[in-house]
């Protein structure tokens, strides 16, 4: 399990640095190295906390003199390359839609499997115009807000309390990491059993699933603060409050923000997922309902709508995360 270090005979409090929290290589963020700024996270599966863990232990090496320069290209070439890749992206998307269109109109793919993209477009417009999505969207967003509020409050509070002692970190962190590797969606039948088919079971499941990335990252964030900062602050006479406000919190907040973002996307995903599997209302429910009614064009339109909502929400959240990290 993740905690072999914690099993070592040396009591953690005697170690020089608070470094028990295993910091596995983080799943690269979606925003990284790409023009798009969206959120990582096929969230459910992003089964590892994401403290900023450089792949190499940082040594005091000065930046390589030769290499980066050798690789640098004249700006004109860079902009040409960027234009080329934009063109390829556009071509790819147009080609995809074209294939879809031809498949549904010319190549005789069953309309029940693949509706005409134009019909999907009409349906999407109709959905937006009629406003029939509002009830489902409201349900889903309310569930999301409740679940995230629960898991964020619980995760951060508990994470902070545990992180106060290296001993508790050693006790709890491996436990959370192990539970985090369980696909908690397995427990959906239980949640439905306890909380019924209504919003309560979605909120509970969403909160339970998103709790873990938040608590793990909070522990990692507060537990990883460099001793040097703490010692420097103490030497200048910082009180407990000052230490928390001006050292621990700013040092930990990037990791915690990552945890919150992961928790948010996870909550969104699990709520839509559980709506799909067992529910009475919500966006996920609507898609399944249309699938069962074989209203394919409308279902596709809803899928596009839900994905757009999800991507928008995730983008907003990762923007917030980035802004929070900048301050």
């Amino acid at each position: 399990m993740a905690g072999n270090e914690a099993d070592s005979p040396v009591p953690p409090r005697f170690r020089a640095k608070q470094s028990h929290v295993a910091a596995p290589p983080s799943p690269p963020s979606c925003a990284e190295g790409s023009g798009v700024e969206v959120v990582p996270g096929g969230a459910f599966e992003a089964n590892s906390p994401a403290p900023p863990a450089p792949p190499f232990p940082k040594k005091k090496e000065r930046a390589g003199a030769a290499a980066p320069q050798a690789i640098a290209l004249p700006r004109k070439q860079v902009s040409v390359e960027r234009a080329a890749s934009r063109l390829i992206q556009a071509g790819f998307l147009v080609g995809l839609v074209a294939v879809w269109y031809l498949a549904s109109t010319r190549w005789g793919v069953n309309r029940l499997l693949l509706p005409n993209p134009l019909a999907v477009y009409d349906n999407l417009l109709d959905i937006l115009r009629s406003g029939e999505f509002i009830d489902d969207l409201e349900t889903t967003l309310e569930e999301l807000a409740a679940a995230f509020a629960l898991s964020a409050t619980g995760g951060i509070t508990l994470g902070y309390l545990i992180s106060r002692s290296p001993y508790w970190i050693a006790v709890f962190e491996p436990l959370f990491a192990a539970i985090y590797s369980i696909p908690i969606i397995l427990f959906l039948p239980l949640f439905v059993l306890f909380f019924g088919l209504g919003p309560a079971s979605k909120i509970a499941l969403g909160a339970a699933i998103s709790f873990f990335p938040i608590v793990i990252n909070t522990i990692a964030g507060f537990g990883h603060v460099d001793r040097l900062f703490v010692m420097a602050a103490r030497s200048m006479g910082a009180s407990d409050y000052h230490l928390f406000r001006h050292v621990l919190l700013p040092a930990a907040s990037p990791v915690i923000l990552t945890g919150l973002r992961m928790g948010f996307t996870t909550a969104l995903l699990s709520i839509i997922g559980s709506e799909t599997l067992a529910s009475l209302a919500g966006l996920g429910h609507r898609i399944v309902h249309l699938a069962e009614a074989m209203e394919m064009a409308r279902m596709f339109a809803y899928i596009v709508f839900v994905i757009a909502i999800a991507v928008t929400l995730n983008t907003i959240v990762s923007r917030l995360e980035a802004r929070g990290k900048r301050d």
């Binding site: 096929g42 969104l268 996920g284």
Partner: peptide, 10 residues
């Protein structure tokens, strides 16, 4: 990355 971030369950 965009696909990775989509809620595939839909």
């Amino acid at each position: 990355l965009l696909l990775y971030c989509m809620p595939q369950v839909t």
